[in-house]
Amino acid sequence: MTGNHHPKGHVLQAFADGALDAATAAQVAGHCAACDACRRELEQIGEVHAVLARDPGPARPRPAWPAVQARLQRERRPLGLTFAFGTALACAAGLALSILVGGGGVHHQVAGPVIENATEGGASLLDIFATAIPEES
């Protein structure tokens, strides 16, 4: 780097960034004091930095914490509990369906008679929905 040996480009860049150790930085500074080409190179690095600095950056983001907290709560929910809850929900839905279809008769164990009795007893799903939703006048 002394005399006619120019510092490499990445060394000049690190010098401009103040990222060299003191001894190397002193060598580069000494060289640049006597070398127009390297001084010009340093000036150009400084110009690019100045241009980059004109960009103020993006405006503030939306606060991230509410979404992060919601994600954490979802992901922390124990898998076993979720599975147990899902199973219980499925069982309850199945029971409710059998009561609705079977007209409340727990003695119906076979699928065929359930449908038959449901229509006979007048407690089919269609009947129930028909009474639950009033007709428009």
């Binding site: 860049q13 690190a14 960034d17 150009q44 110009e47 690019v48």
Partner: peptide, 15 residues
Amino acid sequence: QMLLHRAMNALRDDL
């Protein structure tokens, strides 16, 4: 060091 050097060169040419 190398990444920054190349980036600065590319930016200088581009700008």
